[in-house]
Amino acid sequence: MRGIIYVAYGEAARQEARLSMQGLSYPVTVVGDRPIEEAGHIPFPNPGYGARWAKLNIDLLSPYNPTGYIDADTRVYQPLDAGFEIIEDGWDFAIAPSMMQGEDWLWKCGEERERVVEECFFQPLSLQAGVFFFAKNERTGAFFQAWREMWQGKQDQAALLRALYRVPIKVWLLGRPWNGGTIIQHRFGFARAQ
């Protein structure tokens, strides 16, 4: 069954998630400290910095297959059917590249950038992990496990690239409209406590 997962801890994030899920025509579940009335709820203690540890566990937590993960600080303006169809057609993971490449690559990740190059031998295409769709299967299970193991406790993008290098999966690239564009607008940072 298709469904969307949000991760929302604290009132600011819950309010953003409420606004983001308005008009969605799919089941929605929120991983967080308190329920949101419009959605299912999965409690997850100790969510980690920026709730990223909770996010990195969504393959284990999500009741949906395929699952769409959307950051709370977003607004969904168009149907997401194609994102689910891509996974149902046999892709493991669908995600958009980050607009931050080259010198701006992984700009929030500090020294982890060097670690990525060390392990991957090159500067991989940076991905924007605020929106993605995935299948729950053996390959993605191993990939998420690697993502958790690679996570250094703060940002998740560097760990995502290292995990993909260690555990390749079938990745379909989405375009900018899917994360920061006309389909899903991304209001980066609005879910943090104001």
Binding site: D89, Q101, G102, E103, P124, K170, V171, L173
Partner: peptide
């Protein structure tokens, strides 16, 4: 899309695109 290889998408700089 039809044959779904494990495809590593590389940065556009590999094809000489400046960022």
């Amino acid at each position: 899309y039809l044959y779904k290889p494990m495809l590593c998408a590389l940065p556009a700089t590999w094809a000489g695109v400046s960022l």
